[in-house]
Design a binder for these strands. Structure first.
Length: 209
DNA sequence: ATATCGATTATCT
DNA sequence: GATAATCGATATG
C-alpha cells in the first residue's frame, strides 16, 4: 500500500524555544531538500541541543563571531559549519534574536530521493547496511543533502521557498532516549543528545546507550 | 604571518 | 579500537 503523505513546514514559533525542547520535538520531523524538481527527504532520528548560556561545548560559548552569527539571530535558520577539514554539519537556530542556541542534526532515516543521496555520498546501494551509510552521522547527512556553508548557512528552514526546510507529516515518534553528547570534550557529561530508541539510523558504535 | 584545534569519517588492525 | 586525513576559524605575534 502506498502512503502518500503531505509534509507541512514547521513555523518559527516551534524554534523560538529553548534548544532542549526543540531538540526533543524535532525527533520524528522531516528534513526536506527541494532542488530542480527533485525532493530529498529524511526523518530526524538523532539530534543534540547546544545551549546559549552555560554550555562550553556550544560554538556560541565565546560570543558572536562571523562564523556563528546565525546562532545569535532569529530562530529557524540554518547554521552550517565546516569541521575536521572535510565535513559540514547542520544546525537550526533556536531561542529568540539576540539569545544564542541551536540543535545539531546527527542522524536521519532516508524517506525520499535515496538515489540522489547515494549519488551525493558516492556510495553504491546493495543492501540495508549501505542505506545506513547515507545519513547516519552529522557529516554524512549533510553530504547526502548537498549541504555546504556557502550554499545553506542562513537558510530559512521554516520556508519551503529556501529549498531546505523542516516539516511534519503528522506522525507520532516512538520512544525517545537521552544520552550525553558525542565527540565533545567540554561539558561532555551533560545529557543533551536525543534519539529514537531502536532506530537503526542513529549514529555511533554505541548508538543505543 | 603563523600555530592550534576541532559538535567527523574512513580505513585500517 | 585506533588513527590519519584535512582546512577553515580563531587566537596570538
Amino acid at each position: 500500500m502506498t502512503c502518500l503523505s503531505l509534509i507541512c513546514p514547521l513555523d518559527r514559533a516551534f524554534f523560538s524555544r529553548n534548544p532542549r525542547r526543540v531538540a526533543r520535538e524535532l525527533l520524528g520531523k522531516i528534513l526536506v531538500r527541494d532542488y530542480e524538481n527533485v525532493r530529498v527527504a529524511a526523518r530526524i532520528v538523532e539530534v543534540e541541543a547546544y545551549l546559549g548560556v552555560n554550555d562550553p561545548a556550544a560554538h556560541s560559548a565565546a560570543g558572536k563571531t562571523a562564523r556563528n552569527s546565525v546562532l545569535f539571530g532569529p530562530p529557524g535558520y540554518a547554521y552550517v559549519y565546516f569541521i575536521y577539514g572535510s565535513h559540514y554539519c547542520l544546525n537550526v537556530s533556536c531561542e529568540r534574536e539576540g539569545k544564542a542556541g541551536g540543535v545539531l542534526f546527527r542522524a536521519l532515516e532516508p524517506l525520499l530521493g535515496i538515489e540522489e543521496m547515494a549519488r551525493e555520498r558516492a556510495v553504491a546501494l546493495s543492501g540495508p547496511r549501505d542505506l545506513r551509510r547515507l545519513t547516519s552521522g552529522p557529516g554524512r547527512l549533510a553530504e547526502a543533502f548537498g549541504i555546504t556553508r556557502a550554499r545553506d548557512n542562513g537558510a530559512d528552514l521554516t520556508s519551503p521557498l529556501s529549498g531546505l526546510w523542516i516539516g511534519t507529516d503528522g506522525s507520532h515518534p516512538g520512544s525517545i532516549r537521552i544520552s550525553p553528547r558525542i565527540g565533545i570534550t567540554q561539558a561532555a557529561d551533560r545529557r543533551l543528545r536525543y534519539f529514537l530508541a531502536k532506530n537503526p539510523f542513529v549514529s555511533g558504535p554505541k548508538a543505543h546507550r
